[in-house]
């Protein structure tokens, strides 16, 4: 299963309306974000909301991916404990490192056993958003058989570097190239960073072509309106 190849749609894990609407835009995957999109004081509430949403709403036509908080944030462990029991398609790991992935793996293995899920049925999608992760991207993506692809977060990476992000994205050419090569070598999905101006369809189109021509298999979206264009280009 690598069905989220072309598109994943990010929605805030603390926004009921977005959680309800997420599956209607035809994206391959939906990412319920407990990390960036959720303020520290709402982490508990968002986690419960996503858990209840997974039990209640019909996500049968789409891969459900949960972006948990990093383990060192103090929230990540509880995220996994609560959400993995609802059997999402995958867990997305921020600030990925082989060490973190190993820890998460063992937690997932325990939950799978307790819940009677097939072993290794919950997949992992590391986020490449630090210089460290970029440098060790091959090591990261080969650190677990659960890994089906990576998500490149250019905002995180450029912030880590102290660089300025532009719509054209010349500052991320190397990062994109490095990630794509690593993923292609392992036959994994490579999902490009989202285009943040959701009203600029032309800009999105150009950015999609750039990413596709570099070898990404798909692109993340932050707005349902972006899915159609992404699918047209990453065909």
């Amino acid at each position: 299963m690598k069905q989220y190849r072309k598109s994943i749609l990010f929605v805030s894990g603390n926004n009921p309306k977005m959680l309800q609407d997420a599956p209607i835009f035809g994206s391959d995957g939906v990412v319920f974000d407990l990390e960036q999109a959720v303020a520290v004081e709402e982490k508990d509430s968002a986690r419960l909301l996503v858990k209840e949403a997974l039990r209640f709403l019909d996500y049968s036509g789409v891969d459900v991916i949960i972006r948990i908080n990093a383990l060192d944030s103090g929230y990540g462990e509880q995220d996994i404990e609560l959400i993995a029991r609802e059997r999402p398609f995958a867990v997305m790991i921020p600030k990925a490192s082989p060490e973190q992935i190993t820890k998460i793996e063992s937690k997932l293995a325990k939950i799978e056993l307790e819940e009677g899920f097939p072993a290794e049925s919950i997949k992992l999608i590391p986020v490449i958003e630090t210089a460290y992760a970029l440098q060790y991207v091959h090591k990261i993506i080969t650190s677990s058989p659960r890994i089906t692809g990576v998500f490149f977060n250019a905002e995180g990476l450029t912030a880590d570097f102290g660089m300025q992000r532009t719509k054209k994205g010349e500052e991320i050419i190397y990062a994109r190239s490095r990630i794509v090569v690593a993923c292609r070598a392992e036959k994994l999905n490579a999902i490009d960073t989202p285009f943040l101006d959701s009203n600029d369809y032309e800009g999105l189109e150009k950015d999609c072509y750039r990413a596709r021509n570099m070898g990404f298999t798909g692109k993340a979206a932050i707005d349902g309106r972006q899915i159609k264009i992404i699918h047209d280009i990453f065909d």
């Binding site: 009921p16 509430s45 419960l48 909301l49 858990k51 209840e52 949403a53 039990r55 209640f56």
Partner: peptide, 17 residues
């Protein structure tokens, strides 16, 4: 206009807090 799942989650979060 919350659906049942949202109501459940919000009640639980409020009580836990």
């Amino acid at each position: 206009g919350a659906l049942d799942y949202t109501i459940r989650a919000r009640v639980q979060a409020a009580i836990e807090r």
